[in-house]
Design a protein around this nucleic acid. Sequence first.
DNA 1: TCTGGGGTCCTAGGACCC
DNA 2: TCTGGGGTCCTAGGACCC
Length: 395
Amino acid sequence: MDAFYASVELLRYPQLKGLPVVIGGGRRAADEALRDRVLAEIGVGEFPLLKDYVGRGVITTATYAARQFGVGSAMGLMKAAKLCPQAVMLPVDFAEYRRYSQAFKAIVRDIVPLVEDRGVDEIYLDFTDVPGGQREGGRVLARLVQKAVFDGTGLTCSVGVAPNKLIAKMASEFNKPNGISVVQPDDLQTLVWPLACRKINGIGPKADAKLAALGIHTIGELAAAEPQWLVAHFGKATGAWLHAAAHGRDDRPVVTESEPVSMSRETTFDRDLHAVRDRAALGAVFTRLCEQVAADLQRKGYAGKTIGIKLRYEDFKTATRDHTLPVPTADAVQIRRAAGQCLKRAPLDQRLRLLGVRVGSLVKLVDGLVPKQAPAHTAPAQAAIILEAQTGWLF
DNA sequence: TCTGGGGTCCTAGGACCC
DNA sequence: TCTGGGGTCCTAGGACCC
């Protein structure tokens, strides 16, 4: 989806169309959510501006008009305010984006049943077995999807059509917004190799910097590197993957079903809190996070046995601690107790800017109860005993 | 006045088991 | 006296993605 959050906001406030608008903010922006409702009726000049914002946070999405000024996702708000002070700033309304997310996915699933979720605003579709879905048909199908999504939601999206997910993802960026790109295997050298390595989904800032230090900047240069040389520098798995990716090879299937592994809640404070001096405030937030994650688990029907906390200090360093319970839980009090034990093991000599609570090793509840499961050891242990009986001292 | 919130996956060492 | 070879689980950190 193109500039998804911002585009949803423009549906609500069409008077902002064409203007630089950014979505983001933290605590302070939540206050403005109330004002926001009224703003629908007021003129363009009445909207809160980026330059008037005080507080922490990053931009989650910027309209294309705002991107002209160099403002983009994940940028700190203070930096963004310098680049584009006149941009309108709206608070994040995640519930609304989720509604549009479900709507566009349902529309697409009606056309192409094999859909892999990649967060709120992105999906992979498997066109392979859709009639006419191959070759020239890919473009036709992509246009059909775009039109259906636009007619149903008023939102535009960009589609990449390619032999695999790796290239399709890259191709989807070629013609944003509202574009379609078809990349055939033969197009690899002309369309993909000139691009920066960073364009490969899976190469982030660290890997990119390491490649640059080795003199590799483009995907073509990466493709030319000896596989053994890549393995020597990046390890067996990553080295082999880099080589395959640069040659456009990717055999990952489109995965239509998956179970969550963890659920978490975290919050960044308005100001850094001291473990001792702000003990009461910290304790209240901590308990609330536990209650929220417990509510999330219960609403979605999961329980987990690995309870963890996350701390971010004033110097932005992060520490995590976790503890595994004998039995999965979705209970706020139990989570709070285990998380409290974790907190005792973490360093608290620095001020904190963020606190988080996580529940992992999830199991799906059956009738609201944790299903009985044989311990993982049972089967191998029994097998070993049987072998012992048969082979005597040899085992 | 830098730097959100919610995730997944990988690595690596140590405990522990057979 | 210099010591295996599997395997799984737990914990902590980190890279990366949307």
